[in-house]
Simulated assay, not measured.
Amino acid sequence: MENLPYGALAALVGLSGGLVLGLAARLGDFCTLGALESSIYGGDHRRLRLWGIVLGTAIAGCYLAQAAGYIDLSQTLYQSVRWNPWASIVGGLVFGYGMALAGNCGFGALARFGGGDLRSLVVVVVMAVFSFITLNGPLAPLRITLFPQIGAESSQNYADLISGLTGLPPLAIALPVAVLCFAWALSYAPLRRSPRRLVWGLLAGLAVVWAFVGTAWLADQSFGEVAIEGPSFTAPLGRTLIYLMTSTAGGITFSVGSVIGVMAGAFIGSSIRGLFRWEACEDPRELGRQVTGAALMGIGGVVALGCSVGQGVSAFATLAYSGPVTLACIGAGAVLGLRHLIGGFQPG
């Protein structure tokens, strides 16, 4: 292990965390769009309330790790860049609407592809391409003009904000928030009777903490060569695609490891449950809808600096200003998209 380059070590951190998240998707039914669909149209709130377990675990774990000196959350992307509310709102809405059209977010598409759904491979590739079109390609100048990313000069999280007003340490702010997340989740009796989901919700939250702590240790050891990262699946899809095609453009990184880990975990999980089966798209209109949705997610995710997992879990875990706002806008965009689809709207 000592002879491995730091990028490879970061990839192993991402691979192990991604493996757990992929298993959580398949064995614990952890899915953003699926949670909204089953809650709104199926009357089953277990998957939605599971988010309380994931977030409660991630928030408590991250702030306990910071209090213990294992990580400085201010060095994460979500807090080192000045929060742009419009980027969170516009990017979140665009991402959420695209998620509904595509039938999955980037994380969900990776998990479904790991289960044999070839349609999700189309979503992953198109989303990866459009994320880099927006990040560094033809749409980059427009993105930079409309949603400039400026380094933060002050704290960008709710825990430090409230700490400054009350004098309480950030941990004393974060732990009650985590408790509220757990209470919201466990107040729903059907979820309490689903130990499988509860266990995988805890493990998914711990996977996020592991990612931050692992990359923080590597960042310290490498003198900043490795960035402190949590799981996210928008621009990392593009980085992984480029790496698989060229083995260059930044080389192997945490992003590459986490993407491959989710697919591997999903494959293992779907195989354990006997759910692995090859599926393909037979309806050209469905394919057009998925391509459109994937393109929107690639654009929206880069604008918002993260996806339903990147902002909705990783940024939320640090209590960054952007996390709850972006997650709420992703949810609103997804609900709007689902209503359009149910009403018969078909793009293209």
Rank of each mutant, 00 (worst) to 15 (best):
109 A>F: 00
93 L>T: 08
99 M>L: 03
77 L>T: 04
126 V>Y: 15
143 R>G: 08
136 N>S: 14
136 N>F: 14
130 F>R: 06
120 S>I: 06
109 A>D: 02
137 G>N: 03
106 G>Q: 08
140 A>D: 11
73 L>Q: 05
147 F>V: 06
125 V>I: 14
104 N>I: 13
81 V>W: 11
83 W>D: 10
138 P>C: 05
72 D>T: 15
148 P>T: 05
115 G>P: 10
144 I>H: 15
93 L>P: 14
90 V>C: 01
96 G>C: 03
107 F>N: 12
100 A>C: 03
135 L>Q: 11
84 N>K: 03
137 G>S: 03
122 V>A: 14
99 M>F: 03
72 D>I: 15
143 R>Q: 06
116 G>L: 05
152 A>H: 02
97 Y>M: 14
129 V>K: 08
103 G>F: 00
105 C>F: 03
75 Q>M: 10
92 G>N: 06
83 W>S: 13
83 W>H: 14
112 R>P: 10
100 A>K: 01
110 L>Y: 00
96 G>L: 04
139 L>M: 09
73 L>N: 01
106 G>L: 06
94 V>D: 09
139 L>A: 13
92 G>Q: 06
81 V>A: 15
87 A>K: 01
103 G>I: 12
107 F>L: 07
84 N>I: 02
72 D>Y: 00
143 R>L: 03
134 T>L: 07
121 L>D: 04
141 P>G: 04
115 G>F: 07
91 G>P: 04
151 G>T: 11
118 L>I: 04
133 I>E: 14
134 T>E: 09
122 V>W: 15
125 V>N: 04
74 S>Y: 02
127 M>H: 14
73 L>D: 02
139 L>C: 10
150 I>Q: 07
85 P>K: 07
145 T>I: 13
94 V>A: 10
86 W>C: 06
102 A>P: 09
91 G>N: 01
72 D>M: 02
134 T>W: 06
140 A>N: 13
108 G>F: 01
92 G>W: 04
103 G>E: 02
77 L>G: 11
82 R>S: 15
135 L>Y: 12
93 L>Y: 09
77 L>P: 12
103 G>M: 01
152 A>L: 06
114 G>A: 00
111 A>Y: 08
83 W>C: 12
136 N>W: 12
102 A>L: 05
79 Q>D: 11
109 A>T: 11
119 R>K: 12
146 L>Y: 13
85 P>F: 00
138 P>H: 05
129 V>W: 11
87 A>F: 01
131 S>R: 10
104 N>K: 06
105 C>N: 08
77 L>F: 15
143 R>Y: 13
88 S>F: 00
150 I>W: 00
126 V>G: 07
76 T>N: 00
148 P>H: 07
151 G>C: 05
109 A>H: 01
143 R>N: 06
141 P>L: 00
128 A>K: 09
97 Y>D: 14
135 L>S: 14
151 G>N: 07
137 G>R: 04
103 G>L: 03
120 S>E: 05
